[in-house]
Amino acid sequence: MAAIEIDGLTKDYGAVLAADDLSFTVDRGEIFGYLGPNGAGKTTTIRMLLGFIRPTAGTARILGTDIRDRDALVAVKRRLGYLSDEPGFDEEATGQEILDLHAAVKGDSRSEELLELFDPPLDRPIRDYSRGNVQKLGLVTTFMHDPELVILDEPTSGLDPLMRQRFAEFLREERAAGTTVFFSSHVLSEVRRLCDRAGIIRGGRLLTIEPIDALVNRSGKVVRLHAAAPIPRDVLDVEGVHDLQTTVGADPGDADATGIPTQDPEEADALPEGADAVPEEADAFTECAFTFTGDVNDLLPRLAEYDLRDLSIEEAPLEDVFMRFYGEETDV
């Protein structure tokens, strides 16, 4: 039996089709990433799974229970952990009081261990908590009863880099211990770092479900480079280069006879030393940016002989990934 089976799940708000005939399965023991831009329908899907809102059509089963049966779902929630995208706690209560309530309702087999890891300030009232502390308390309440299935809605928002790192390690250990994790995110890098598989949702529709490796290969990277001397354009004639934009740092004619550049210092800095040797503009560049979906090992040797001032290879923004692979047809 799968941990989550979604079958034709639809939520139609009239003006907005927040979830459009979603069907997919989350297997036991995997970390499943639910990826999409803000407003794609991720939270709507999750809130249907938990029985907060009713599907317009279709259904889903979590841990074998039909989500439309709210009474049966109550029992399932004992084996379920959930972290909302904006965890809300009683502002007047202290963290400890919140933990005590959760412990009384659903049990507590591991809050001690979790508190060592995430460490929210328990004796302070929630109203004095920072966003990050609320998130930490939320993580403790989500995992304290050692759930079989955990549903996390944007779990790392508000966490600082150190905590993100700690959370990522923790999640991997959870998977090793057999916990199923379903988590939503709008950050591609986070999903690829943590997940086994990912589903991509946009405009309420599931675009694809892929093993994370396939997604990584398809998603592409943004490469920016800045060379000391012009590089011929055909150097970048490699498979996987898209949207190549090139510029020559500056027009050498602008430097006056004294050798002092007339541009502002930042641009002047970009002026190649051998500016005189610039070939035809269309054939060479000193700065460029492009999306790269190929193998970086094919790219770097071609650049090795040039004197680079800077080179960055970054995650493509999620929106660009959507535009590249799903284009207009998915634009809602």
Partner: peptide
């Protein structure tokens, strides 16, 4: 007030009937 402030989800995610 709990719906308004987004606190109800946390309660309803617990094993308690509405």
């Amino acid at each position: 007030e709990d719906v308004d402030r987004g606190r109800l989800d946390t309660q309803l995610a617990m094993p308690v009937s509405r």
